[in-house]
């Protein structure tokens, strides 16, 4: 009865539409996390996001990441560790723009891997998106049927009106 979870990780949409290495499926439901987003063209959004995440460190101490947007171009840095371990002045200087999203993550054993760090990046025809979430179970791509495993359930997509 239980579908092979590998069925759902195959890449079947447009050629390499997203970085699957970075948005890999977690092994278990994800845990409470800290998310932060800022739109502030007059500010150093990378640094403000860093301090925002620093204040949200209690919500996740396993990994941290920041993605910044400058004129539609995305720069991303994320890694395992506390916010203060993942970022340095030098790294923050490489990030910048008018907008940023950030994430601190906690997870259980088994998914303590940098591939599960966020923000997740996905390339689209309209440009790259960066997503930081705290979520338990959610949809998965290309698994409209029979795709229910320990982590995810899926309802069919709404028909386009």
């Amino acid at each position: 009865m239980m579908p092979n979870s590998d069925d759902c990780t195959t890449e079947t949409t447009n050629a390499d539409p997203m970085d699957l290495g970075r948005v890999a499926r977690p092994d278990k439901p994800e845990e409470a996390c800290g998310v932060f987003g800022i739109y502030a063209p007059s500010e150093d959004v990378a640094k403000l996001t860093y301090f925002g995440l620093y204040a949200l460190q209690h919500r996740g101490q396993e990994s941290a990441g920041i993605a910044t947007f400058r004129d539609g171009e995305v720069q991303l840095h994320k890694d395992m560790g506390l916010v203060s371990q993942v970022f340095s002045e030098q790294i923050l200087q490489t990030l910048g723009g008018e907008m940023a999203v950030g994430h601190t993550r906690y997870s259980t054993t088994g998914s303590s891997r940098v591939v599960n760090a966020q923000p997740a990046i996905a390339k689209t025809r309209l440009g790259t998106l960066a997503l930081a979430h705290m979520v338990t179970w959610s949809t998965r791509p290309n698994c409209e049927k029979n795709c229910l495993n320990l982590t995810f359930s899926l309802s069919p997509p709404l028909t386009q009106k």
Binding site: G37, Y39, G72, M99, L126, L131, V135, S153, S155, L158
Partner: peptide, 23 residues
């Protein structure tokens, strides 16, 4: 919004796009 309608469970999220920031 169509993606959220396919989501079950609890989630709060922030999405950056080239055109704007979503919460």
């Amino acid at each position: 919004i169509s993606a959220f309608h396919r989501c079950e469970g609890a989630f709060s999220l922030v999405i950056g796009t080239p055109d704007g920031l979503m919460g």
